[in-house]
Simulated scan of single mutants.
Amino acid sequence: MRLTVKQHKNREPGNGMAVIDREAMRELGVSGGDFVTIEGGGG
């Protein structure tokens, strides 16, 4: 799966929070409030 990271307009960068769309959450098997680790591959 490939996700694009961009700054959320209402959040400060570096706060450790991420927003993931519902379809991606379903594919990953996670729910709102779950803790996840995001690792970058650098294309």
Rank of each mutant, 00 (worst) to 15 (best):
R26Q: 02
M17A: 02
V19Y: 05
T37M: 14
A18E: 05
R2Q: 15
H8I: 04
A24D: 12
E39Q: 14
G32F: 05
D21N: 15
K9C: 05
G40Q: 12
G16E: 04
A24M: 15
E27D: 01
M17C: 06
M25R: 11
L3I: 14
I38Q: 03
V19A: 15
T4E: 15
V30D: 09
R11T: 08
E12A: 14
L28E: 09
D21I: 06
R2W: 09
N10S: 10
N15F: 02
Q7E: 15
D21F: 02
I38L: 15
A18N: 07
G33Q: 06
S31C: 03
Q7T: 10
I20V: 06
E27Q: 13
M25F: 02
T37E: 15
R2E: 13
D34Q: 00
I20C: 00
G14P: 05
G43C: 04
R2M: 10
Q7W: 07
G40S: 11
T37L: 14
E27K: 09
F35E: 08
G29E: 00
D21V: 04
R11V: 13
V36F: 07
R22E: 06
G16Q: 13
V19S: 14
D21G: 07
L28A: 06
E27R: 14
V5S: 02
G33M: 07
G33H: 03
K9A: 14
G29L: 01
E12R: 12
R22I: 06
V5M: 06
P13W: 01
Q7V: 08
I38W: 10
E23W: 11
D21K: 08
G40I: 11
L28P: 00
G40N: 11
P13D: 00
I38E: 07
P13I: 00
V5A: 05
N15V: 04
I38G: 01
G33E: 00
I20W: 10
N15K: 05
D34K: 00
M25N: 04
N10K: 07
G42T: 09
G42P: 00
N15Q: 14
D34H: 03
G43D: 10
G33P: 02
F35D: 01
G32R: 13
G40R: 13
G41K: 11
A24T: 15
E39L: 12
Q7C: 04
M17Y: 07
G33R: 01
G14S: 01
A18R: 03
E27T: 08
I38A: 04
G41T: 15
